[in-house]
Design a protein around this nucleic acid. Sequence first.
DNA 1: GTCTATACACCGATAGAC
DNA 2: GTCTATCGGTGTATAGAC
Lengths: 182, 182
Amino acid sequence: MSREEAIAKILKVFRQYGYEGTTLSRLSKATGLGKASLYHYFPNGKEEMAQAVLDFVDDWMKANIFVPLKSDSTPRDRLQQMSENVDRLYCSGEQTCILAVLSLGEAKDLFHSQIQQALKSWIDTLAEVLVEADIEPTLARQRSEDAIIQIQGSLVLARGMNDTTPFQRVLKQLPEMLLGNW
Amino acid sequence: MSREEAIAKILKVFRQYGYEGTTLSRLSKATGLGKASLYHYFPNGKEEMAQAVLDFVDDWMKANIFVPLKSDSTPRDRLQQMSENVDRLYCSGEQTCILAVLSLGEAKDLFHSQIQQALKSWIDTLAEVLVEADIEPTLARQRSEDAIIQIQGSLVLARGMNDTTPFQRVLKQLPEMLLGNW
DNA sequence: GTCTATACACCGATAGAC
DNA sequence: GTCTATCGGTGTATAGAC
């Protein structure tokens, strides 16, 4: 198994159980690797695995969210593209946000600056698109923040209610909400 | 120390560290009680403490959110009252939502139905107020759901950005958003 | 009620064979 | 690379003195 494949499986565990709830036993089971083998890929153990997971998601978001947002198609198309990839990122609302999960407990101290940076980049990039769509910078910024709030909030609600409908509704309305047509 | 006082301190630990990250050592430190003393108040240990915390918050929400929402003042006043108490519940955005935290990992299996019920009651009660304010039931329900989404999402963002501003903005706009005046 | 002491399982991590 | 075996530490939980 490649390191990349292992990271994808490890990611699922961290998303479900959080940092402290993710044990080497669970990671071993999820990857099919023995504990010692995990240390072959990640010499610094659990912390390095969480770091790898964060880096992996970081790269994925750059490629599948930020790059599309900076493309040369129309603002509406770019926002639509983002929504589709956000839907994939969170498996239509069935998976938590790793940024949200790793901002709890001990993990908060370890990864806070990286999480903060990822959220900030997302909001900033989104706001730039809205400014291009002739929205006032202050309003653009606020709407972008609201978009992240709605995505995160609907993930929480979907998890708590065991129903992904709220997430899907939010995502569907997202482009028009951002552009202010409603 | 009374059981109630202990629960309030235990609540803080679960909010910060989540279910798996909350250890008896941390609870012992937070309460000032030895581990064995904790078992005097909560014979079934950690699970019972989490249950007590959930029940405590449940009662608090009934008294400080649901009851005000069902009072006989105007819809706007009731929503305003809710916002103020939500602000207290989450310490102006500095504290997580225990319902959101306990819907992760092992705790999800243990407490899912109670968490689901609490969220559902909140949305239902909110929607009733909006219907009284002559809003169509379908729209009332959707806006109520959006309110919970925005509260939860802004808490996540506030935590990730280490900045409670988003939460406070959401809360301030909440009554007018719900009534549809914006 | 609160404590010290302790039981036993599981934690993260490592050694070393293959 | 992957494994088994094992380490020291900490987890939850309990016994029993005071």
